[in-house]
């Protein structure tokens, strides 16, 4: 239930984030036994570079506290959607926090929003979406991959989020989002290989009062194709963005200082000695940037569907014909 509300103390069944350093974090499920890769039930012991941790020993400890490992220590944190995104088990490619934040902002989500997401994938985006729209909003998330749907469903359950999300196994491009969601949602988000095939279905699902459609595509061809389709369906104000977050390492750097002034005059050896001692290096607080970083994640496109009475009807018809 670790995502439902703020917790102070770790309880049986929680998901905790074990923090060793920024690049070494692990989600742990706090329970006595787990099944190993071969399906055998074994004691839940987590091995780190600093020694082993018997996971049940965390019960009763405070979130944010330091835990002893055999050869060092680590911290345990309550997961936030951001920590979860960084540590979750990948079943697919996932969307990361910088893009997620931007998507939520562009779709103008807030508590109470009713939204559709497809595909669910590894649930990285879903966790952040749910945080934004609960308690009165709802997320309908679709994926056509049976196993991904069932894993995500178990996760939402364990995380205490099932009240805010409905999962469905469906090929949305072929079947749409279902009669029950007709004119019910404020926003639709698409992260699948053929977003243009889901646009018509999205139009039907959006409220008559209008709404937003956002899609994430790594390739520009998908963007172009989907944008054309969106315009045909009466969407307006299309914008495509690319957002890259660059992390910097804060560090002290020692900069050697050359004394070149002293060369202008004759100096005694003593002088030179003295000068040497004075300042040869300067300590500078600065940053280093990584040598290689993700240079592209995906294009994020946002489009607005006006309320029915303000939609452009003529364009609509025109496209229908040329579409075929």
């Amino acid at each position: 239930m670790s995502f439902k509300k703020i917790k102070e103390v770790i309880e049986d069944g929680d998901i905790v984030i074990l923090y060793l350093n920024p690049n070494n974090m692990h989600p742990l499920e706090v329970k006595e036994k787990i099944s190993n890769k071969k399906g055998k039930i074994i004691d839940n012991v987590f091995n780190t570079a600093y020694g082993a941790l018997r996971v049940v020993s965390l019960i009763g400890q405070k979130y944010g506290s330091k835990v002893e490992l055999t050869r060092g220590w680590a911290y345990v944190l309550q997961p936030t959607p951001e920590l979860w995104t960084l540590t979750l088990p990948h079943r697919t490619q996932i969307i990361y926090s910088p893009d997620i934040s931007f998507i939520i902002h562009l779709m103008e989500l807030r508590p109470g929003s009713i939204i559709i997401e497809t595909g669910t994938g590894s649930g990285s985006l879903s966790h952040a979406l749910i945080r934004t729209i609960r308690p009165s909003g709802h997320l309908y998330t679709f994926d056509f991959h049976e196993q991904r749907v069932s894993i995500a469903s178990t996760e939402f359950e364990k995380h205490g989020l099932s009240d805010f999300v409905t999962l469905k196994e469906k090929d949305v491009c072929l079947e749409g989002f279902g009669e029950e969601l007709k004119h019910k949602v404020d926003a639709v988000f698409l992260d699948l290989p053929h977003p243009w095939l889901a646009v018509e279905h999205a139009t039907v699902a959006l409220k008559k009062a209008g709404g937003k459609l956002c899609f994430f595509s790594p390739c520009i061809e998908q963007v172009q194709r989907t944008c054309t389709k969106l315009i045909c369906e009466g969407f307006i104000e299309l914008h495509t963005y690319e957002c890259l977050q660059r992390e910097m390492n804060v560090q002290y750097k020692l900069l050697p200082i050359l004394d070149l002034e002293c060369l202008k005059h004759k100096h005694t050896t003593e002088d030179i000695h003295k000068n040497r001692k004075e300042k040869q290096e300067e300590k500078l607080l600065t940053v280093t940037q990584s040598h290689s970083l993700p240079g592209h994640t995906g294009f994020i496109t946002i489009a607005v569907l006006p309320p029915t009475y303000a939609r452009k009807k003529e364009i609509h018809l025109q496209c229908r014909n040329s579409d075929k």
Partner: peptide, 10 residues
């Protein structure tokens, strides 16, 4: 973590 962002529109 310290970071900055790059945003480009198309």
């Amino acid at each position: 973590k310290l970071f900055t962002n790059f945003l480009r529109s198309y």
